[in-house]
């Protein structure tokens, strides 16, 4: 693995946080971090430390309080936000991934159908593409959300705790899928997670959000752990 790959995303003195009334709450020290193309980075840290805020800032959903985020590519995200629309089919949800490329009448081209099919295939949901979301298990729903992000056909994925509330099988399956996507599709992936074991086994790098408002980058134990 080369350490000197292309930089897919980097931040310059990024101030991450939020405004509450007239007060500004900054969550981290000014950040100068980077993601290398094709890497799977696991982002760890205790609850409330600001992982979600950082991910949303990197994705451009929240404005930075200072400094800047520079991406080489558009970003697709998987969040913990609840979505409405229990009657929505899996395919309809994945179709959302194509929205940035569709006109206001949402006319799908062959290319869009192909990318949706491909996303469904990658997460193994083709057989239930017409099922409604309220009929899915938590694991299937999470896979469908990942498929939506994949259908966006971006080189970068940011995921906020995609394995939360899932059983071990599903957690392993999702982390393996992310590793495959990074290895085989060359996607740059940042995933916030609490799964230390799985992170050590799958990640190329680990980011640790510490209590003193820093993000420490480290390598998972080398050698062991690449085989589950």
């Amino acid at each position: 693995m080369s350490e000197q790959g292309n930089i897919a995303l980097h931040t310059t003195n990024l101030h991450v946080g939020y405004k509450k009334g007239h007060q500004t709450q900054v969550l981290f020290e000014p950040l100068n971090i980077q993601l290398i193309q094709g890497e799977l980075v696991c982002f760890m840290g205790s609850n409330g430390v600001g992982k979600t805020t950082l991910i949303k800032t990197l994705a451009g959903i929240y404005p930075p309080l200072g400094g800047s985020v520079t991406h080489q590519y558009p970003v697709a995200i998987v969040l913990t936000d609840k979505i409405s629309g229990g009657l929505m089919t899996v395919r309809d949800l994945v179709t959302y991934g194509r929205y940035p490329h569709l006109n206001r009448w949402l006319t799908l081209q062959d290319q869009d159908h192909r990318l949706i099919d491909n996303a469904l295939r990658l997460v193994h949901l083709q057989s239930i593409e017409n099922k409604q979301l309220n009929q899915l298990s938590d694991g299937q729903l999470q896979m469908a959300m990942i498929a939506k992000a994949l259908a966006q056909d971006t080189n970068m994925l940011l995921l906020d705790e995609p394995t939360a509330h899932l059983d071990l099988n599903n957690r392993v399956e999702i982390m393996n899928l992310l590793r495959t996507l990074a290895r085989e599709e060359g996607k740059t992936i940042l995933v916030a997670t609490h799964e230390l074991d799985l992170a050590l086994q799958t990640a190329d790098k680990i980011w640790l959000a510490t209590q003193d408002q820093k993000i420490v980058e480290g390598m998972p134990e080398t050698g062991a752990g690449w085989h589950l």
Binding site: G85, Y99, R104
Partner: peptide, 21 residues
Amino acid sequence: TMIKALNGMLLGESYAVSLGI
């Protein structure tokens, strides 16, 4: 003419913003 925004609202604001809506 607002179907894209309406569909987007079902996913909530963050997802909608990330989809360029």
